[in-house]
Simulated scan of single mutants.
Amino acid sequence: MKTLDEFQAVYHLPLPDLMFRAAEVHRQYRDYRDIQRCALLSIKTGGCPEDCGYCSQSAHYETPVAREPLMSVGEVRQRAEEAKARGATRFCMGAAWRSPKDGPEFDRVLDMVRVVRDLDMEACVTLGMLSASQAERLAEAGLTAYNHNLDTSREYYSQVITTRTYDDRLDTLKHVSKAGIQVCSGGILGMGETENDRLLMLAELAQLDPPPESVPVNCLMPGTGTPMEGAKPVDSIELVRLIATARIAFPKARVRLSAGRDRMSRELQILCFLAGADSIFFGEKLLTAPNPTHDADADLFRAMGFDVPAAVSTGSCRTALPVTVSSCSPCS
């Protein structure tokens, strides 16, 4: 699928047909029980010069999020070790920057990537826009994946962000891909966009060569003080339809059920898994937003008849399901 018409034809199938087709594709390429449980660490919080209307870390808005400087390499190592002890195999770090500047802080991020890789974990970062040389340096440091969401369609983008362009985002994805780093890119639902805007975003991602390694689907977490504070919740069936469409369009990618799970019922989350989602965040915080507890996720897996990772139920470092730390967040 490449065009809006093709995406619409799939998205508007009768729901049972859409779900069945997505499940067929999913099982063709993955074990449906292989649901990655993901975590995310904010290594530099708040004070971002971008005006993303959904983000509580933007310096343009009065929000409760306090600014915090870039963490030390030692702090990141400790957090990565803790994540690995809970079974994580991929560790992601997010920094609230428009784009990183070359110099001591970027060098520190490179060291963070090396530390994570030295722990025999995959490393992922989301730092904003990158130059080609920065992408190359991240690749040399061993970076596995880079998250940079398109957020929405090209047509609706200016209603969300004015401090950078859609092509700025695509340029970063091109730099990352050319450097040999895996691309993680998706969008945010619930910002006032139409269903066609969401499908156009997927169509834009489908033009990438190679296609994204993972496609995060975020539901807006309305932040106090942001322009989208009063946004309405995303329609549940629209969410399920988009996940199923993404699964069909990107059969080999991880389709990540990312931000917003704390507002979803257990039944809705299970529907999303049936539609092809195969990744969630674990931990009670996503950068600055709440997330379901470990106990709630353990109950969710039990309800689906899956083995519950021992790290969740007993605190041990062995797991029965694949556990991965991902870079999917709505703040990149």
Rank of each mutant, 00 (worst) to 15 (best):
E213A: 13
S214Q: 01
V215K: 04
P216C: 04
V217N: 03
N218Q: 01
T226S: 06
P227A: 02
P227E: 03
P227D: 01
P227T: 03
E229W: 09
A231T: 01
A231S: 12
K232T: 12
D235E: 15
D235V: 10
S236P: 07
E238L: 12
V240M: 09
R241A: 12
R241M: 08
R241K: 11
L242K: 08
L242V: 09
I243G: 09
T245L: 10
T245R: 07
A246I: 02
A246P: 02
A246C: 14
I248N: 09
A249M: 10
A249L: 08
A249H: 01
F250D: 05
P251G: 09
P251R: 07
R254D: 04
R254F: 09
V255W: 01
V255N: 06
R256V: 00
S258F: 00
G260E: 01
G260L: 07
R263Q: 04
R263E: 08
M264H: 11
S265P: 07
R266D: 09
L268T: 14
L268C: 06
Q269C: 01
Q269T: 00
Q269P: 00
I270D: 00
I270E: 06
L271A: 15
L271M: 13
C272R: 00
F273L: 11
F273C: 14
F273T: 04
L274V: 10
L274E: 11
A275F: 03
A275G: 08
A275Q: 03
G276T: 08
A277F: 10
D278Y: 05
I280G: 10
F281W: 11
F281H: 12
F281Y: 13
F282K: 03
G283F: 13
E284K: 14
E284F: 00
K285A: 09
L286V: 04
L287F: 14
L287N: 05
T288H: 06
T288D: 14
A289N: 08
P290C: 09
P290H: 07
N291M: 11
N291L: 12
P292F: 07
T293A: 06
D295S: 14
D295E: 13
A296E: 14
D297W: 10
D297Y: 13
A298P: 08
D299N: 13
D299I: 12
D299E: 15
D299R: 15
L300H: 13
L300C: 05
L300Y: 11
F301P: 02
F301Y: 14
F301L: 12
R302A: 15
R302H: 06
R302P: 03
A303M: 14
A303Y: 11
A303R: 14
M304N: 05
G305V: 09
F306L: 14
D307G: 14
D307P: 07
D307Q: 09
V308C: 11
V308I: 10
V308S: 04
V308L: 06
A310E: 06
V312T: 03
S313D: 05
S313L: 04
